[in-house]
Amino acid sequence: MKILVPVKRVLDYNVKARVKADGSGVDLANVKMSMNPFDEIALEEAIRIKEKGKAEEIIAVSIGIQQNQETLRTALAMGADRAILVVATDDVHKDIEPLAVANILAAIALKEGPSLILCGKQAIDNDFNATAQMLSAKLKWAQATFASEIDIKEDIVRVTREVDGGLQTIDAKIPAVVSVDLRLNEPRYASLPNIMKAKRKPLEEINPADLGVEITQRLKVIKTKEPDSREAGLILENIDQLVEKIQENVGG
């Protein structure tokens, strides 16, 4: 079976997002960009499934600007077999919405015929948490969101989901789209030999038009601002003072 893993190039999670002074967005010029951490977890899971002999091929897909090929090289170095880059814009500040991403991925899925699409549950830039759900709707496939455990049994995938209140286990019929949560696994680092090997793995470059998909933006970003900030407060001298403050604020 084939596994498709979409990977997004985002502002590195260790870099603090800075809002541009003109309110047009978060500054992405000359900052460190990395693979979305949730997508790394999805890719790691795909690699582990392949290592267990339950999958033959892993295809990584990235949608965005030309430089996303760096992200795809990382994916190939971690263990993806080949990569598809969909060049959808030349502006790093233009975020492709989950609905458009789902349309592009659905077209690729119809062409490639994967049994499983493993996605990160959200991108740490736009925080939408929507691509996997929209994609499964487009394909009319089963969806299993927020996975903390994935077990493939022939034609079903058993997924334990992190939900409010605890854990829920469901069986999803394959083909399925699974979105992964933080505690599914810890992604590996690519080794130097694998980074070298990744340079020779196939990376195909296409446009949304090649897939017959037109990108239309549904949400117009009117402005981006800094959140209201909190002032640092008082450092108290002893426990009794703290007890007093807690009692004042516990309410009736």
Binding site: L11, K16, A17, V19, G25, V26, I124, D125, N126, D127, R218, L219, K220, V221, I222, K223, T224, K225, E226, P227
Partner: peptide
């Protein structure tokens, strides 16, 4: 038109839906 946090709440975006 709606406001929503992005980047883990490090920015607040105003978006208009068509």
């Amino acid at each position: 038109t709606f406001e929503r946090p992005v980047y883990a709440g490090n920015a607040i975006q105003t978006v208009q839906s068509i």
